[in-house]
Write a protein that binds this DNA or RNA. Structure first.
Lengths: 369, 369
DNA sequence: GATGCTAAAGAAATCGTTTTCTCAGTCAGT
DNA sequence: ACTGACTGAGAAAACGATTTCTTTAGCATC
């Protein structure tokens, strides 16, 4: 924003040409109030006049100053979006969707990545407060609730994933982890796996707990008793996946398959298995979670549980809009359901040496149906 | 931003409690001008008074309204960041760095991903203009200059990668593609490869042309004549990599190695080779470009040319700051140099059947030195 | 033809800051 | 003691919109 000092009239005849609502009003021969009304589609304005104003606006290529508008109307038209790790490919895909939908409804977004660091979190909340966001989507999968008090206290609408305080102006996006994870477990069990490991996310995260619970539950449904040494804690990174897989390979009795709390972990696992000289899926089966884009081209392509980023983004924006646009709506915390589904690719197969090729083909076609 | 209507005094004794500079002024028994001066560290204010004001500010947990501030000061303290594809992992890493550094200097950022779509680009420029950004970093690697006229005309500081109009308030980040790419070519040549292919980015992008030129140049330096059918156009996506590799495999005489214009392409290539039953690096060598994080764990880990996201981000923010904070500085377009370097991992090796193990070991150690 | 009502547009207040202007004091120099 | 320069702090004018309050004009009603 330069041209601040162009106020003093310059002697070469040109008017100072600052582009504000007054310029338009003057050019269209109406009051600024009318221009404002035209821009906001207030119905009481004479259509002929409106047309004239629009023409001037188009011709001069004018657009209103968002901050002035926000200041007086009390509406910033900005949503905040807090993610835990922008470098995990899951999130950019989410951000993309969130941005698209928010922009579509006339909102701008302020993204911030906390990297699981409470200090960063608190700093970014502060920034959002300063910018007067009209709502914040907290896509960190459940962490640091105390910090969010600052937002709640100032009555900023919020939307969480999985779990959040039951308060007015707070919505929760419920992810049905169970559905997809059960499909995964059954898929493995159907092929004959009994020794199935699980690599969780950081257990401080609610979602990590939910996913583990869904895994354990699904295992039991198949009549398999969970072996605790086969449930190891990861951290949703590739490095974590590598380390966790290392631990699993070192267990007394090795599992034959592993489910991961997210795809990045699975990618680490794939890598560790490659290093260990084990072939996937011949020697070991791997299932991921998220279905990020690169899951299609890992070697081998990753069987994974899909959670729709688009659905997540859409629901989040909708929830925030609902709150922002009806400030005193008595109906608070709506809950939105997000489905999960297994996508079978090539990182899963029969446990080593249990089946002939003929049986393989048969079982596989049954599974896919 | 709710609590808009809390103006009317409520009958339970409490004051309406709106938190603005006036509240602070009243509580500290000074004028609002003084409060403002204190917050902005204006040196002429009495230290004792300043202390008192700070105490009140802390105690009431007050922070100024950014939009009011921006409105009057004419400074939004927002930078725009336009990337071509947020779902390409290169960019999140860049965004992260950009955000960190911008925030460190008190700026907020507005990110937008154009997905190579001019319509999106133009829309996002408009949005940035509306929010009165103080500068825009155009990290699309050279495209759609006409659209950027809108920004230039309004004298918004800009920073480009590689190439940009020589105008005041416009800086360019020069990437030294040649250095890293030459290293890559020499690395391959040193191991005995002569038949080296190249998959470019979208040729509409300046960076794609620069990278190809660097490749062709480096090839000639090694006395290899470029074979045009081995230079194919990709689009910087995994899918593009797969398709391009397919084309390369179909050439009359197959190359023995390929360099890619970015890592996503290389990942696609790796996948295609896997599908084709070719082993990397035994049957085919692959080099990427960017050194995104997952390049470390591809199978096999990817040899690639590193371009520092952090350097890029830092330089971009610094360039924008320089312009934003000295609006009438006569010195425009500073240029910043970004280095590139080869990172040798495991996707490159000797061409099939050309060397004995002894020779291998020797050549490899020489290359790494 | 005076009155009341409605529709449409202008005037003015407002949002929460920064910044310029103004005005008391203080102090030094003569 | 009077002037001039300087300090420090308050008063008031922006900033560029929205929104409330007024005004004007037109029309129907009695």
């Amino acid at each position: 924003m330069p041209d601040k000092k162009v106020k003093s009239s310059n002697h070469d005849g040109k008017p100072p040409e600052r582009m504000d609502i007054r310029t338009i009003a003057r050019a269209a021969n109406v009051s600024i109030a009318t221009v404002s009304r035209v821009m906001n589609n207030v119905p009481t304005v004479n259509p002929r006049m409106a047309k004239r104003v629009w023409e001037v606006i188009d011709q001069l290529d004018y657009f209103p100053n968002t901050q002035a508008r926000a200041l007086v109307s009390g509406r910033s038209r900005i949503f905040g979006l807090i993610v835990s790790e922008i470098t995990n490919p899951f999130f950019p895909e989410l951000i993309q969707g969130f941005e698209d939908i928010a922009v579509e409804h006339g909102y701008e977004i302020l993204v911030s990545s906390t990297n699981y660091d409470p200090k960063r979190m608190s700093h970014c909340i502060r920034r959002m407060l300063e910018r007067k966001v009209e709502g914040v989507a907290v896509m960190t999968f459940g962490i640091e609730e105390p910090l969010l008090d600052q937002l709640a206290r100032r009555k900023v609408p919020l939307v969480f994933i999985d779990v959040g305080p039951k308060r007015p102006s707070v919505s929760v996006l419920k992810v049905d982890y169970h559905h997809g994870i059960r499909q995964g477990v059954q898929h493995l069990a159907a092929m004959g796996h009994r020794d199935i490991a699980f690599i969780t996310g950081p257990m401080a995260l609610h979602s990590a707990q939910s996913r583990r619970a869904a895994f354990v539950g699904s295992l039991k449904e198949c009549g398999i008793v969970p072996e605790s040494s086969w449930i190891v804690e990861g951290d949703h990174t590739m490095e974590g996946g590598i380390a966790s897989m290392e631990n699993l390979l070192a267990t007394k009795k090795r599992p034959t398959a592993v489910m991961c709390s997210n795809d990045m972990t699975a990618i680490g696992v794939l890598h560790k298995l490659y290093r260990a000289g084990l072939r996937v899926p011949d020697d070991f089966s791997v299932i991921g979670f998220d279905d990020i884009h690169i899951a299609e081209v890992t070697i081998p392509p990753l069987t994974t549980v899909q959670m729709s980023r688009f659905e997540l983004a859409r629901s989040a924006v909708m929830a925030l809009r609902a709150h922002a646009e009806n400030p005193n709506d008595p109906a608070p915390q709506r809950e939105y359901e997000i489905r999960t589904d297994l996508i079978v690719r090539e990182s899963t197969g029969f446990p080593r040496g249990t089946m002939t090729n003929a049986k393989k083909a048969k079982a596989k076609s049954a599974t896919n149906a």
